[in-house]
């Protein structure tokens, strides 16, 4: 017994619709769970990175300050020159020198936070 091509094609064209029956809800639940896991991982990584940065910063303050001294002095000199002649005669040199290490720590924290916010969602 042979099957003719036409009836075979007719059968193939018949597609009983598949009802949703909670399928879309299951997909949305999976998406939400995946997002939650990702955010938890990111939060944990961010907290660890910030903690590591702070620990390193507090132990290395003096070394960094020594390294950064020439650089911050130059910045302070340039800034002082730029602002000279204006009414703002700020003690920039005094402001920059002790805060060099704080600037670096702040920059690291800012960088980590920026990365964290960028990949959050």
């Amino acid at each position: 017994m042979t099957i003719d091509l036409e009836s075979l094609e007719d059968q193939l064209r018949q597609r009983p619709p598949i009802t949703d029956h909670g399928f879309s809800q299951a997909v949305l639940r999976r998406i939400a769970a995946q997002r939650r896991r990702r955010q938890q991982t990111l939060l944990a990584l961010w907290a660890l990175a910030i903690m590591a940065a702070l620990i390193v910063a507090t132990t290395q303050f003096e070394t960094w300050a020594a390294h950064l001294q020439p650089l911050t002095s130059t910045w302070a000199t340039h800034a002082g020159q730029m602002l000279s002649g204006t009414s703002w005669q700020l003690g920039l040199k005094q402001l920059w020198q002790p805060s060099g290490e704080m600037v670096v720590t702040g920059l690291i924290a800012l960088l980590l936070t920026t990365v964290f916010v960028a990949v959050w969602d």
């Binding site: 597609r15 619709p17 598949i18 009802t19 949703d20 399928f23 879309s24 809800q25 997909v27 949305l28 998406i31 939400a32 997002r35 969602d121």
Partner: peptide, 25 residues
Amino acid sequence: LGGADDRAFGQLVVMHQSRVRALLR
């Protein structure tokens, strides 16, 4: 887009689930 509206994506799933599931089945 960009995870802005999950309900909109849910509607897309409802619209297309039958085709995708039919193919995979």
